[in-house]
Design a protein around this nucleic acid. Structure first.
Lengths: 223, 223
DNA sequence: TTGACAAAGTAGCAAAAGTATACTATCATA
DNA sequence: TATGATAGTATACTTTTGCTACTTTGTCAA
């Protein structure tokens, strides 16, 4: 049997197939807390419950593209930091039918977000992760995202995805403290990230204390 | 519309669906190298090429169960360390049709493996990861597994999954060195893992030098 | 104009962790 | 009984981390 014969003969409809969705947890830091974008469901199943924005994977798009599409349709944002989290495949996770969900998380600075509209709203991520009243297994997805972020903060630069292009060190430190869930020492923090940043000649103003210098992220050195 | 009406009305066949497979990279340390179990493909596509053992996901099983099934059918082993890696969904990754692959990796000590039979064989993982001649995107899956292992060695106990229940410290250190790709200092290594192990009163014998004490992994302390 | 307040930013020490080297111990073998 | 080989230990040195105290520079109110 040649390969072309085989391809002709293979009938993919011979096998039952699960549906595949991509669900994306969009995180930001707001009001001194890590928050996640949730959607109040208008339809069954889990009508009225909170869920993550998700889409069915199109037959011609990659998973990353599906994740970007889900985010764009809810926020209008493109080119934000996005990464695959985990794939959930329990047969009972959707009461309608077998649905496998590839989950993603995304990070965006609060300043670049328009206030969420319609059924979308930001919720404290820790509350969602701890709640027993979230649609599907989306509570676990959020918990998984929180954990991933907390790990990666220590050995990557993902925290920079949560601040604007120009930022002060007190701002950045606050992001780290919220993600890690603990206070950091100012002097040590600055030593640690000194090599990752470039000072600008801009300063904050107006506050009743010494102005804070603004910095940018230093581009990664290849190799 | 009530929920039951909705469920009746929903026809899952209205949407085209990708197929979903689970592909599992089984790693072990053999001949002083990290090796991975590969299958010489008997059928199209990629006939004659090496691929990872994989199965289509059954409609009633979880993804973890599918991964365990794939491993069991090739090795006869159960209850080995297994963890999800990443999900691959490029539309072109399988020439037959749209197939989304949820990849897993597994770790097993060499001693518990029977010699592979039939089309199965162990290959140096680094060579597979670097090769351009592997079926599907399985070369990238192996590369992803190597990277994950290398990361997790430092902050988890996955290295213990690659040695027998009783092991010597020189053995364990060799595993660490192979996974990390670098020599470690004996004294420092022992300080680091001292709290993770329990000494037994067994010793190696027969070698023309001082016998080596055997240890077991200390059970994780809850909390 | 100036003193109080507040947060930004800096200096430096001590403890802990990591890096590296030198040493002693114990077997098989010749 | 000396030798070679690897197991195992002691210890000095270096870097990082944890912590405290200090100086700087703005607003605001007396």
């Amino acid at each position: 049997m040649t390969e072309s014969e085989f391809l002709r003969r293979y009938r993919s409809s011979d096998y039952p197939k699960p549906s595949v969705t991509v669900d994306t947890a969009l995180f930001t830091v707001r009001d001194n807390a890590l928050q996640v974008l949730m959607i109040r469901r208008q339809e069954h199943p889990f009508q009225g419950k909170l869920s993550l924005p998700g889409v069915f994977v199109g037959m011609a798009e990659t998973l990353d593209e599906a994740a970007a599409r889900a985010l764009y349709s809810k926020t209008g944002l493109r080119d934000i930091y996005t990464e695959q989290l985990y794939t959930w495949g329990s047969p009972e996770r959707d009461p309608r039918m077998r649905v496998i969900s590839v989950s993603y998380y995304a990070l965006v600075p609060e300043q670049s977000l328009a206030p969420p509209e319609g059924p979308a709203l930001f919720c404290p991520a820790a509350e969602i992760a701890a709640s027993g009243d979230i649609a599907f297994d989306h509570s676990r997805i959020v918990a998984c995202g929180i954990e991933r972020i907390r790990n990666k903060v220590n050995y990557t630069d993902i925290a920079f995805s949560l601040v604007d292009e120009e930022f002060t060190l007190p701002e950045l430190q606050r992001i780290y403290e919220i993600l890690l869930g603990q206070k950091l020492y100012k002097a040590n923090f600055r030593k640690k990230i000194a090599e990752k940043i470039i000072p600008t000649d801009h300063y904050t103003s107006g506050a009743p204390h010494r102005p804070s210098r603004m910095y940018r992220k230093r581009p990664e050195t290849a190799g």
